[in-house]
Write a protein that binds this DNA or RNA. Sequence first.
DNA 1: CTTAGGATCGCCT
DNA 2: GGCGATCCTAAGC
Length: 186
Amino acid sequence: MTEELRDILMQGSVSAAEQLIGWRVFVKEADGNLVGGAIVETEAYSQEDAASHTFNGETARNGTMFKEAGHVYVYFTYGMHWCMNFVTGPAGHGQGVLIRAIRPEAGIDIMRSRRGGKPYRQLTDGPAKVCQALGVSGADNGAVIGGDKFVVQPPVGDTELTVLPTERIGIKKDTHRLWRFIATDE
DNA sequence: CTTAGGATCGCCT
DNA sequence: GGCGATCCTAAGC
């Protein structure tokens, strides 16, 4: 992991969630090819936030979120879906950034086959869809960015993405926090 | 285009 | 025993 990325992740989940928009996340396939694209939607979670898995302290499930910035927290939900987060902050803080959506750039055919032939726009427009398209599952929980599987690279191009903070989705508690960030110029 | 309901299971109270 | 950081399909406008 680069120093630039580590700096962003160490600033905490809310700041990191905003700055990660436009960064690109990929997984390395067995043949070495990359599959993934640019992050266009994130959400921040932290321990003092009632909507976070870490709100009630460390448990068997959420242990990865208490590691230091740069780990990948993958959790299982609704009996059938996986979602992935980048852990932020120093070890012990229980915070992270949920990767809610990406714009496919590399390995689109692989993503399409993993997503049952869905059209381009529906390949990775939700947190569980991102994991399905990238082949991320519970086996990846606790991995590190820059390890064997996860590659994260800075934004490319000279166009600055406009980032809009909004309310988070799919939660019942602490909905007032504007901790969801989306790229507006799609 | 919007909404409602079902699928499905591990974690936590 | 309840319910979730979700997705998909079908049916209603």
